[in-house]
């Protein structure tokens, strides 16, 4: 898995590439934590090049969403979610917890 962070004026965008499972989820969590620890709480996760995500990745997203939404200081939104991952998120009841955008730049613009 590869993660690239792009800092915009009003939010951060994490571009995640490859596969997130129990082996790689800690790296994904660290990337999310690095943003919130720098005092930034508006995060777009661009999943356009993500091939796979297990519940280990869902847990990382949930923990970060909690941190970001605290005190209404921000939120995590998802962009370009591949169909299979979207279906798994729906099955897990996660689609109600995250706004999703087809276009990553539209997600950036929403902040």
């Amino acid at each position: 898995m590869e993660i690239t962070n792009k800092e915009f004026k009003h939010c951060d965008m994490l571009m995640v590439k490859g596969r997130i499972d129990s082996a790689t989820a800690p790296q994904f969590s660290q990337a999310l934590d690095a943003v919130t620890e720098s005092g930034r709480f508006k995060i777009v996760v661009d999943m356009g090049e993500l091939e796979y995500m297990s519940s280990a990745g869902f847990r990382a997203l949930l923990a970060s969403q909690r941190a970001c939404k605290r005190y209404n200081r921000g939120e995590v939104v998802l962009a370009a979610v591949p169909q299979r991952i979207q279906e798994a998120l729906e099955l897990a009841g996660f689609t109600e917890l995250f706004k999703t955008f087809d276009d990553p730049l539209a997600a950036v613009g929403s902040f």
Binding site: L91, A92, G93
Partner: peptide, 24 residues
């Protein structure tokens, strides 16, 4: 099984993998 209707603050972190496995 996790409560899939729970609010963000009440969502369980555990049990999700097992739940998915059963559903899939």
């Amino acid at each position: 099984p996790p409560d899939l209707k729970a609010d963000l603050s009440d969502r369980q972190i555990g049990g999700l993998g097992i739940y998915l496995m059963r559903k899939l």
